[in-house]
Write a protein that binds this DNA or RNA. Sequence first.
RNA 1: CGAGCGGACUGCGCGGCCGCGGCGCAUCCCGAAUGCGACGAGGAAAGUCCGGGCAUCGCAGGGCAGGACGCCUGAUAACGUCAGGUGAAGGCGACUUUAAGGAAAGUGCAACAGAAAUAGACCGCCGCUUUGAAAGCGGUAAGGAUGGAAAGGCGAGGUAAGAGCUCACCGACGGGACGGUAACGCCCCGUGCCAUGUAAACCCCGUCCGAUGCAAGGUUGGGCUGUGUUCAUACGGGUUGCCCGCCCGAACGCAGCCGUGAACACCGCUUGAGCUUAUCGGUGACGGUAAGCCUAGAUAAAUGACCGCGCUCGACAGAACCCGGCUUACAGGUCCGUCUCGAAGU
RNA 2: GCGGUGAUACUCAAGAGGCUCAAGAGGCGCCCCUGCUAAGGGCGUAGUGCUGUAACAGGCAGCGAGGGUUCGAAUCCCUCUCACCGCG
Length: 130
Amino acid sequence: MKSLRIKKKKDFTRILRVGKRAHAESLTIVWTPSDVMRYAVCVGKKYGKSVVRNRLKRLLREAFRSKAECFGIPCAVLLIPREAKEYSYAAFARDLGKIIRKEKLLAARPADDVEGLPANGGTLSEKEGV
RNA sequence: CGAGCGGACUGCGCGGCCGCGGCGCAUCCCGAAUGCGACGAGGAAAGUCCGGGCAUCGCAGGGCAGGACGCCUGAUAACGUCAGGUGAAGGCGACUUUAAGGAAAGUGCAACAGAAAUAGACCGCCGCUUUGAAAGCGGUAAGGAUGGAAAGGCGAGGUAAGAGCUCACCGACGGGACGGUAACGCCCCGUGCCAUGUAAACCCCGUCCGAUGCAAGGUUGGGCUGUGUUCAUACGGGUUGCCCGCCCGAACGCAGCCGUGAACACCGCUUGAGCUUAUCGGUGACGGUAAGCCUAGAUAAAUGACCGCGCUCGACAGAACCCGGCUUACAGGUCCGUCUCGAAGU
RNA sequence: GCGGUGAUACUCAAGAGGCUCAAGAGGCGCCCCUGCUAAGGGCGUAGUGCUGUAACAGGCAGCGAGGGUUCGAAUCCCUCUCACCGCG
């Protein structure tokens, strides 16, 4: 899954400039269409010390992993959590689902029509239908 | 049984399922692909406070400056660390704490108070003179008052009053004998005592220190054009803060174009003063010998989510070149001791 | 990861072992000036916590936190906390 990470500073600044923002209670995401499905988590020093930051990143990655198949089209996504005292997987997963429903449900329809998508996209749309 | 003291260890466990990191093997459509396998954070990984290794610069040159340490003996690659001892302080005790060299080498500082702060007569006490009270002169550091500190302490003798003026004891200083590697201890003799504190103030003495840190540094990969600055007996650059000395002969900056994953890839990057067990030497820190073991290596940076069970319901906390220490944070739990004190019983 | 700098009232800050002293300025409060305001001028408040008083006065603590050295520490020495800066 390493290939699906966004690493370059250039990419970050580009996505932040042109990407669309969507907010939920526990986190914000910035997304833009892309040729492959890619993502990154944004956890700076303001969130706490290394133990807290590491846990936060794991939770976000796990949440994204479980919901990645719900995306209709391949996107580049930045996950930005909201500062809080405690973080939970359940809240991240729920809010990520909400955002996808709000923003992407319409985008998921064309994915069903286009059959010539990469193997990834094909299986995804199938599962989403179920 | 209660209250302590010292030391050592541990840091939720088991199962299922999805997922992550590099590694090994296999497969194929040879890709940052898929499958399988074993492995995968700490006692502090933390703070970055010390000491090393390693790397580059310098070229193993000198001086000044600067910094660190400081009872003794040992351990160690080294240390500001550790071990054992000495002195001092605290505790009934087991024990604990301790930056603990030098103040007759010199300089500085000691506010306020107080008569006086490194030297002294304000009150008081005593004597003499004059006198109505009182004043003057002299003696005196026992008492008062001030202060953190007031001229060794305390008792006796002594005296006009006093004073190491004299004496006993304690302290201090000097010398000697004995024990100990030494710090030092202990005993004897002598000296009436001979200079307050501060060196985490400058300093002196002794020991030690080149600078920069893996963003060190190396490999692959780079050309063209224009232009500017400086320079030949001095200038520029490098060398530690400075000076001397030494090295290099061209060095550096700006703009544009081509090219470029370049804030990239790979190496450094994990086998090491390594770990475990046994045994020998040593009071101990530690060292020797033998056998066995290989135990994270990421780079937007790997341990998580869900379910079930158990219990004491899980603290502090996440490797980033590697080691030895120190310091700080921490839910609890376990074990050890010819350990200490108190109570009760025998 | 590595290296460095700093912390003093609400804000900006001086002080570098004793006293004048926790300076000074902004801000804040009152007064003058004005028909009213701004600007200007003057005066002063007293700073924070605790204690204390009828109310003042006064006392104690306090310079990021905790120890130590010293007769005495904002200042000297350790440990910790927080903030900020630099890096091929």
